[in-house]
């Protein structure tokens, strides 16, 4: 038996789950881009200022922490918790947003800002998978290979990404564009394979879609 028989799913929207005939929606409508609109860097209402972990395509590992609108957002985050320690995770997100990864210097600086020991910050940073401990490419591609996606060919999707970017898992491609890693369940199990590229989920991804998906990334940045 060949490794992968074509699946007879009734629909196939490469990149997003929708428009099955029951619904007539565009990708933007499904993603909520229309509703969300452009979000301010300084954060809008403080209640949601901790929830802006954009992954920016342009990252500067030496960017200052935190200035201008980022400083505003930092201050807003602090108002939402009874102590400064609780702001650690969102502030690290913020730091990663501007610097692209969390370097030892970043940990040190964040610790200083929140009055936490650097060793403690390091302990927290290394606990969570979303903090990049090393610089990553412009596009961080996380392929879910957990059970539901795996049943439907996630391993092939993973291989296709690696082949396209010509890298090993965790490496950044020579042109600095792609870093492909394996991810645990992304909660998109009904739309396999689920792939997260920077902030965005791509659902129903099949191995054959990879080249065009990657071209789209290079061209549009999303």
């Amino acid at each position: 038996m060949s490794p992968k028989e074509p699946m007879d799913t009734p629909f196939h929207n490469p990149g997003w789950a929708g428009n099955t005939g029951e619904f007539d929606l565009t990708e933007d409508q499904v993603r909520g881009d229309d509703f969300v609109g452009s979000r301010p860097l300084a954060g809008a209402h403080p209640s949601s200022s901790a929830s802006y972990p954009y992954v920016l395509v342009d990252k500067h590992p030496e960017s200052p922490l935190f200035e201008g609108p980022y400083r505003e957002r930092f201050d807003k985050i602090l108002t939402r918790y009874p102590d400064t320690r609780a702001a650690l995770l969102p502030v690290l997100n913020l730091a990663q947003e501007v610097r692209g990864h969390v370097s030892p210097e970043t940990m040190d600086r964040v610790g200083e800002l929140l009055d936490l020991e650097p060793a403690y910050v390091r302990g927290v940073v290394t606990f969570y998978t979303m903090y990049n401990k090393r610089p990553v490419g412009r596009f961080l591609i996380q392929v879910c290979t957990n059970i539901s996606c795996n049943l439907c060919g996630a391993d092939e999707v993973m291989d296709a990404f690696l082949r396209y970017s010509n890298t090993e898992p965790g490496e950044t491609s020579e042109d600095g564009d792609f870093t492909v890693i394996e991810a645990e369940c992304l909660a998109g199990c009904g739309f396999p394979t689920c792939v997260q590229i920077n902030s965005r989920y791509y659902e129903n991804v099949k191995a054959g879609d990879i080249p065009s998906l990657c071209e789209r990334l290079r061209a549009d940045g999303k």
Partner: peptide
């Protein structure tokens, strides 16, 4: 009360460490 040691990483990779060279 000088928390220079921390558990870093998680699961079976977790280990006691200081802040890098410190």
């Amino acid at each position: 009360q000088d928390p220079r040691l921390a558990v870093v990483e998680r699961g079976d990779r977790s280990i006691i460490d200081t802040f890098f060279d410190e």
